[in-house]
Design a protein around this nucleic acid. Structure first.
Lengths: 206, 206
DNA sequence: TTCCCATTGTTAAAATAATAACAATAATTT
DNA sequence: AAATTATTGTTATTATTTTAACAATGGGAA
């Protein structure tokens, strides 16, 4: 399949979670406008996204939730799952680990890294924390493909370099320090302060 | 001034922080391509953003960093600052408080809320944690205008309602539960799992 | 002094994303 | 059985964002 638009991929992730909730409630079929209401978006957008992934509903009955969830899985997941490392065991790093804990997801955080002796060689929500020195070794050994950087910003660039060298193919950068990575590494950056300043701006303006 | 485009506002926040770093290093003027390099974007984009906020550099000398930082402040900040509440003292809530701690920013987290007795009536990085029951009272009393929701997703909608009722004008929703708010409240949503699944998808595709 | 060149500021074009419009169709009502 | 209605799927339109193109300017070089 053609690579999907960024925003569609984001929504697929959200559709899936909402749809799983509905499944858990015993619902089997759903209309585009119902999905839209769950996410507070428009039904056109839902139908367009579903069109893009090549699924079809039935007129008057809507979409088969189970089938749709399955198809989203085929698109977003890999068969054997993807392994993730968290670099930086601060609040945000722990937050990620905690979020994914106990979710039977195809995404698995399999290692954490830090330099604080109090955190090293301990386990948080089943994730073992190694010294940062072991970064490349463990990533290669475990064949980890995704890294989440939640360190202090100053060290983020060198972490990114090490990750890329060790064979990581996707980086989620949570530090406010903009990174640059080799072409074959997918980079997603998110800056909490920027979000907050954005809210502040629009509050001020309206 | 006309309301600026979303993406420009986001970048202004980032320009400011990078420019402050440069100031701290003693640099006084900067070219658009230098700013671009710091953020790993293009110089056209930098110039266009700067045009939109109505600032002008000098040919051959670039932009006066101090002036530019000041102007971004005029645009993003309010004179007396904006007060913020964090609802949910988990990892992410603490992360936000920690991030803003000691930064002499116009954004000030002035209260946190939780229902866990171990957290209530304690202080984390100078932020006092109240019982959730006090939410509306404190928000009104302190005239808090922005709320960051970092609670478990199930309770997010009711928190949002309370915030809106108490007079909050901007909400940053960190839970994966999509919210809807009154028209006069600005809502920004961010979902960590979506980001991660997006990275996973593009890693898989490339 | 004249020409070159780096750099800005701005308009034009392209890419991406969201919304609107509407034809097709099958269930339901009359 | 015909008409109505709710809903999908898709194309067309509009809005937003990024990128490209390039004229203007003034400092420095020739």
């Amino acid at each position: 399949m053609e690579t999907l638009p960024d925003k569609t991929v984001e929504r697929l992730s959200q559709y899936r979670r909402s749809l799983n909730n509905q499944l858990a409630k015993g619902k089997e079929h759903i209309f585009s406008h119902e999905i839209a209401n769950l996410l507070h978006i428009t039904s056109v957008q839902v139908r367009r996204d579903i069109m893009l992934i090549g699924y079809s509903g039935t007129l008057r009955k809507g979409y088969d939730i189970k089938e749709l969830v399955h198809l989203i899985g085929v698109i977003l997941d890999t068969d054997d799952g993807q392994k993730i490392a968290v670099i930086g065991m601060g609040n945000i790093g722990k937050g990620f680990i905690h979020y994914l804990y106990e979710k039977r997801s195809k995404l698995k955080i399999v290692a954490a890294f830090d330099i604080n002796p109090e955190k090293i060689d301990k386990t948080y929500a089943d994730v073992y924390c190694y010294h940062l020195d072991k970064l490349e070794e463990i990533i290669k050994k475990e064949n980890i493909k995704i890294g989440i950087i939640t360190t202090p910003p100053q060290v983020a660039p060198e972490i990114a370099d090490k990750l890329a060298n060790a064979g990581i193919k996707g980086i989620l950068n949570y530090t406010p320090k903009p990174l640059s990575v080799p072409e074959d590494v997918y980079l997603e950056e998110y800056d909490m302060i920027t979000s907050l300043e954005k809210v502040a701006y629009f509050v001020k303006e309206e």
